[in-house]
């Protein structure tokens, strides 16, 4: 299995998501946590880019960070998986290694 990339920065303020996507090989997964979760929603200026990335990557978002920020899981882009911390742990073990793009 390729690796899991975690992104914890808002895509509206930082370029971390772009950097992660540029360096994720096909089949690698992306997990959005902390302020990174803002990339997961429909109707934003980055939504099209994230949808396009779904062709090559599984993308996940950390549900507790979504809820904490008053965002709705219903508005998460279709195809993005919502996981809890247990799911985060499962992704870490399922993929070969983790690259945390800080």
């Amino acid at each position: 299995m390729p690796m899991l990339h975690t992104v914890n920065k808002s895509p509206f303020e930082r370029r971390t998501l772009d950097t992660a996507l540029r360096h994720a090989v096909k089949g690698a997964a992306i997990l959005l946590i902390e302020d990174g979760v803002y990339a997961a929603f429909d109707g934003t200026v980055v939504a099209e880019k994230v949808k396009a990335a779904l062709a090559d990557h599984k993308i996940y978002v950390l549900g507790p960070d979504v809820a904490a920020r008053g965002m709705s899981e219903h508005h998460v882009i279709e195809g993005i998986g919502v996981v809890d911390y247990g799911g985060f742990v499962d992704l870490v073990t399922e993929y070969d290694k983790v690259q945390s793009w800080l």
């Binding site: 946590i33 302020d35 507790p64 911390y85 247990g86 985060f88 742990v89 499962d90 870490v92 073990t93």
Partner: peptide
């Protein structure tokens, strides 16, 4: 920064999963 909180939640979940 949230990172310490995230690390605690992650660590708890990993222990709960038996890791």
């Amino acid at each position: 920064h949230q990172s310490a909180d995230s690390a605690i939640q992650f660590t708890k979940a990993a222990l709960e999963r038996g890791h």
